[in-house]
Structures are given as C-alpha cells and as structure tokens.
Nucleic acid binder design. Structure first.
Length: 495
RNA sequence: GGGCGCGUAGCUCAGGGGUAGAGCAUCUGCCUUUUAAGCAGAGGGUCGGUGGUUCGAGCCCACCCGCGCUCACCA
C-alpha cells in the first residue's frame, strides 16, 4: 500500500546518495522570521537556512512550490531544476510529511507570497506514513477555511503527534498551558516559596476524598498507592520549618472520566505558614491576575460564550448566605427534615447524598454553583466535609475553607489548615466511621501526619489549584482531553 | 456503570437488502512564479469484530470491541 511505496522511494533515494535520515542541519532562521524580516525591493538577497516538514507540494515539471512547516508556522519554498540539479530529481521522490532542510534566498512571488528560492535541498527525515493533510483556502470574506480537516477524536488523542502536525491551532493551547505553569511557578518563586517534591508512591493516601490507584513494590513486598493529593506531605514540610512550600505535580484518582476528569491530572498545592484563608483568598486573586497578564496580556476572557473578568475584587459569599438567598433555607438552623425537603425540591437525589453535610454540598452544587460565572469565592464549609481544615473561629459547625468558582466550575480549594493534633485525630476518626459505613472515599488515619502535628505546625494557609481546569478556562477548551497531550484511553487492541 | 450516537479507501464523508462510491492524498504522463495549481490517465477496501436472518448483508438482528456526547461520581 502507501507505506510500501514510501519504502521504495526511500531505498531509491539512498541509491542516489541521499541519506534519508540525516544527523543534523544548521538552521539559522524560521518561517516566521523569513516573512517578518523581508525587505521589499531590496538590492541584497537575504540567504536563510530553514528546516521543516513538507506540508504541501505543487509540482510543475522542472519547478515546484512546497510549503514547509516549522514550529513558527509555514513558509513557501520554490525549487527549480536549473538551481539544484540532481537534488531536484531527489525532490521528486519526496512526499508530504518528509522533513527537509533548505538553503535559499528570500523573494516574493508574482502572487505576492514571501517565499524562499531554494539553492540547496537536504532530506533530513523520510516520512513513510501518509499524513492526513487538510487543505486550506480563504473564502470571499478572507476567513480561513480548512477542507477535510483531521477531526477523528480517537485518532487525534491516540496519535497526538499527528494532531499536532496537521492541526496547527491545538499546538497553541499546549504552548499556553506550558506558559501558564511557568508563570505560576515564577510567581510563587518570586514570593519566596520553595518548590519541593514529595512521594507519588505512598503507603497511605490522603489529603482528599477519592479512590486511589494501587500498586505493589516487589522488594519491600508492600502495597503502595499513587497519591490522590500532596497535602499531608507538604504540611509535614511546614512542620519542618519551611517558609512556604509548593508542588506542581500529577495526582491520580481512580474514578470516572468525563470532559472535566482525567485519571491523572496536574495540581498545584501551596502551604504558607502564619497565614489564614482570608490571606489566601487575596493571594489567589492576585496570582491568577498575574498569570493572565503575563501569559495573555489581559484579564478579561470568554469561556464557552460567557464573559469572565478576573478584575478585583472577586465576589465573596458565604456558603450559608448564598444557599439561604437561593433557597430560603438556613443550613445552620434548619432541621434535617427541612434540609431534606429543600434538597428534594431542587432535585437532589437524597438517597445518594447521605448525611447532612453531603446534602448541603449537593444542594449547593445544584442551586448555586452553576450561577457562579464571574470569579467568586465561596466561603466557610460544613465541618465534616473538610477533615483537614480548621474549625471556623466564630461559627460553630463550619470550617475556614473557601473554593474559587469561575464559569460555574471550581478552580481552587483552600483552607486555614488544621494544626491541632487532637482535633485532627478526632476528624480522622470521624472519617474511619464513614469508611465503616461504606464510604470508599473517606480518609485514612495517617498516624505519621498526626505525629508531625504533635511536634507543632504553625498556623498555615493551604491552597490547591487544578491546573488542567485553569488551562481549560483560560484557553476556552470544554474538554480536559484538549489540554492534556495524551489523555487516558483504553489500550489499542491491535494496530 | 446507565442512556444516546458514531465506526465504509491514508484523511473527510456519501451509500440504509441486489456489481463498493466521491473529494483530497497516492501513482503514471505533460507542465520553470504555483497556492484547495492545472490537464490526461491509473491504482487503492477483511465497509470495527464475531455470529445470525436472507437466494443475496456496509445496509436488518444479537453479542463483542473502540470512540464521542450525556447522566451518575468526582477536582
């Protein structure tokens, strides 16, 4: 088939003395630079060496045009038999997808496209699989129209390398992702917080409510878990005396997958001693604004057609108030019966949401959360949903916790960290009871963490930011799979 | 895990019981400023898989595999 044909071409090229897999090529320019630095009607011809993948070929006998694609985009090149001789015959054996290096001078064609007139052509890598190339045209309004674009989601995710070659716009999202993380890291570093690494393989998992992945260490003959959060280890480092630590890394949760959940996902967790959640709210607001400005040069965005501005101040509402406002129910004073009634009224499945706090959480998700479009902090959560957060300093039954919401989605979660070892043990024991009642996501008791708290942990503010979701928000992507290079898929059975 | 939808050439898609189709890509010939280059010709398919119904199955039925959307769960 097609691949076989390409093998033949490859051997033919080798026969002609063209090594199809070169060792290097001294690039001194790129597609963007060639076009940006072209001087109209210049006496002097500018010579450049560029390398890239052939994405289109238009052959006209003894001369051809082709488009080369590099990291910066595409540029047209012009090849003539008169100029390159034998290389032109070799070029006839080259295909869309081949990677070549060229030397030539920059000129403008009759139709006005800045191009490179090739004086030397080298094959750098022969492609033996046909690329699903789309063609682009411009309609009467000057809009770019792509014909037969490579759109099969399964193929795009499984063969992301192909997706990246042929769908040039997606590359941009991933570049943005990388820059968002860099900007965050730079910001945290500038504040003097130390980036650290803690174990991914853990004998106990903790720091969140989730089911873990399990693995086994052979020489220790021990079951280990892939972490579901970094939290407990990072707080142990705060006990150790660091002035603020953070970690940007993968967490793993063995749960359902959908457009906002991938089994492995990237989280940033930050812990700052001597601060509380009020301080952290301010911090998050400014950090996000900073990232937006550095990466995008703006703080106003559109997500799924909705306008979102990260301008200060973000709305701050307490969970109690916002639920009361929406449903008329005071979750602190209302009886269990009233709560159940209200929940039912708003369509909460009260059989699934067992326990008062879970019911409140569910009621919140259904009634309030979808309406939190502009950046908002929801403050003060029911105590038993948050076994690692400090009790509220004035309101009984709540903890000092906030979540940031944008476009109806949670983007961060933070609390004044619980540093009372006796209270922490009580809370863990509450989780054990939940586990005994069948809650597979309840926390395990981490004795070493309690021991660390017993040595004394300063009052600390902690924060977790879901990086993938932040990237989705800022790049207007509706599926987490479109901000992760290689989203989790079932294994291919055979090729 | 449930519901809905999809799977046909390398890619994008038609075809819904009676000889497997189109455009792009590929191959051959012509063509030294083209740009979805053009002109003339050609090749290319286990129609996701396995069974079944039928004289006959991409097409109808069952099961399986994969993907998407969605619900449940979660960040």
């Amino acid at each position: 088939m097609l691949i076989k044909r390409r093998f033949e071409e490859l051997e033919e090229l080798r026969g002609k003395g063209f090594e199809p897999y070169a060792y290097s090529f001294a690039v001194d320019s790129n597609s963007e630079d060639v076009k940006a630095n072209f001087i109209e009607n210049s006496e002097e011809k500018r010579t450049v060496k560029i390398a890239g993948r052939i994405m289109a070929i238009r052959r006209m006998g003894k001369a051809s045009f082709a488009h080369l694609q590099d990291m910066k985009g595409r540029v047209q090149v012009y090849l003539r038999k008169d100029d390159i001789g034998d290389s032109y015959d070799a070029f006839k054996l080259m295909d869309i997808g081949d990677i070549v290096g060229i030397e030539g001078y920059v000129f403008k064609t009759k139709t006005g496209e800045i191009s490179v007139h090739v004086t030397d052509l080298q094959l750098l890598s022969k492609s033996i699989r046909p690329l699903p190339v789309a063609k682009e045209t411009t309609d009467e309004h000057g809009n770019k129209v792509v014909h037969d674009q490579f759109v099969d989601k399964e193929l795009r995710y499984r063969q992301r390398y192909v997706d990246l070659i042929v769908n040039s716009t997606i590359k941009d999202t991933f570049i943005k992702r990388s820059r968002i993380i860099s900007a965050m890291r730079n910001y945290l570093d500038a504040k003097g917080y130390l980036e650290v690494e803690t174990p991914i393989l853990q004998p106990l998992y903790g720091g969140a409510s989730a089911r873990p992945f399990m693995t086994h260490h052979n020489s220790l003959d021990t079951d280990l878990y892939l972490r579901i959060a970094d939290e407990l280890y990072l707080k142990k480092l705060i006990v150790g005396g660091f002035d603020g630590v953070y970690e940007i890394s993968k967490d793993f949760r063995n749960e359902g997958m959908d457009r906002t959940h991938n089994p492995e996902f990237t989280m940033m967790e930050l812990y700052v001693p001597y601060k509380d959640y009020v301080w952290m709210m301010q911090f998050v607001e400014i950090m996000i604004q900073n990232i937006c400005t550095v990466v995008f040069g703006k703080i106003d965005f559109v997500y799924e057609g909705k306008n979102i501005s990260f301008k200060s101040p973000w709305k701050r509402v307490s969970m109690v108030d916002v639920i009361k406002e929406k449903t008329g129910l005071d979750i602190l004073k209302g009886t269990n019966e009233e709560l159940k009634e209200t929940a039912k009224k708003y369509g909460v499945d009260i059989l699934k949401a067992e326990g008062r706090s879970k019911l409140i959480d569910e009621l919140f998700s259904v009634t309030v959360q979808p309406e939190l479009i502009e950046p908002s902090f929801v403050v003060d959560y029911p105590l038993d949903l948050s076994p690692l957060a400090k009790k509220h300093r004035t309101i009984n039954g709540l903890v000092e916790r906030f979540e940031g919401y944008v476009a109806g989605r949670e983007i961060c979660n933070a609390f004044s960290e619980l540093n009372d070892p006796i209270d922490q043990r009580d809370r863990f024991e509450g989780q054990v009871r939940l586990r005994e009642e069948g809650d597979a996501e309840a926390h395990q008791i981490d004795e070493d963490f309690i021991r660390a708290l017993e040595y004394g942990m300063p009052p600390t503010a902690g924060l977790g930011v879901g990086i993938d979701r932040l990237v989705m928000l800022l790049t207007d992507q509706s599926s987490i799979r479109d901000v992760i290079f290689f989203p989790q898929m079932k294994p291919e059975v055979n090729q």
